[in-house]
């Protein structure tokens, strides 16, 4: 049985992405990273991850658009999506939750907390 969980995450700040990858891989997750919003939805369709972590402000395609695409596709709509966003853009959070995101994390964030929240969400499933 393969119980390694897969997470797709989209984050455009490279070093932060590397850190998240390091932290989450340490916890036994498999990570697939996108540097922009482009292709994320297709990635979700192909890999059927256990969770999607989306930055909202991203070049080419923003996180909320990706979220909308995921939630409007029945084959992947049930995959939990967690949003990551700068606290200056708090009102996007409400929009994101309305669109079906399960949780959000405001930057600046503590990586330990982020890992815990992700684990909890996956446990509940």
């Amino acid at each position: 049985m393969n119980n390694q969980k897969t997470i797709i995450f989209a984050e455009d700040t490279m070093h932060i992405a590397q850190l998240l990858k390091f932290k989450l891989e340490k916890e036994g997750f498999t990570l697939i990273h996108f540097a922009t919003g482009e292709g994320v939805t297709e990635g979700v369709i192909n890999f059927k991850p256990d969770l999607v972590l989306l930055d909202i402000m991203m070049p080419v395609k923003d996180g909320l658009t990706v979220l909308k695409e995921i939630k409007s596709n029945p084959s992947i709509a049930n995959i939990p999506v967690v949003l990551l966003t700068a606290n200056a853009h708090e009102e996007y959070v409400v929009k994101g939750l309305q669109l079906g995101a399960i949780d959000y994390i405001l930057k600046p964030f503590a990586s330990a907390e982020l890992v815990l929240r992700i684990k909890n969400i996956l446990k509940m499933r």
Binding site: H15, P108, F109, A110, S111, A112
Partner: peptide
């Protein structure tokens, strides 16, 4: 300069 992003976006123990 490498730490810049981290100092801006992390808090708690990491920071």
């Amino acid at each position: 300069h490498y730490l810049r992003e981290f100092l801006l976006m992390l808090k708690g123990d990491d920071f």
